[in-house]
Amino acid sequence: MALNRDFVGRVFPPGEPYEVGRVKISEFADAIGDPNPVFRDREAAKAAGYPDVIAPPTFPIVMSLYTPGLADPELGLNFAMVVHSGQSFAYVRPLRAGDVVTCTSTITEIKSVGSHESMTVRTEIATVEGEPVCTCHNTLVERGA
């Protein structure tokens, strides 16, 4: 089904802040099988120049994969037919334990690709103090019938 082009440029304001926890970071690092101590051991992170344990590069997906506003029926997105077709992260600095962040998402593009619909969402992750941390671009494809 064609997605509603009126949603291009739609901004979804931040919801509740997300608090980045040390245990969540280590759980994520375990799940991706990455044994790097800077994800688990505060002393190792400090020795590497960080104030606390840092998160792996793809960790921001935890708070940015689903933008609740995409469930708006007016957009017309059928989640059952959605596949993740592209992802990028531009980091100001690594996310780290103790960060309290919000996500502000914008639909930047909707286009047809053959019988499919492709949509890109940009999410700006910033601390509640206003420090930008990471910009994510998430491209989803809704497969056509």
């Binding site: 991706i32 099988g33 990455d34 790097n36 800077v38 994800f39 590497a48 120049g49 960080y50 840092i54 792996p56 590069p57 793809t58 592209g86 992802q87 990028s88 992260f89 531009a90 980091y91 600095r93 690594p94 671009h137």
Partner: peptide
């Protein structure tokens, strides 16, 4: 991401990553 950060020696050295 792990492949690149292991090579570079620091996950925080990755400034941009897209696929």
């Amino acid at each position: 991401g792990r492949f690149v950060s292991d090579w570079a020696g620091d996950p925080g050295a990755v400034l941009d990553y897209g696929v």
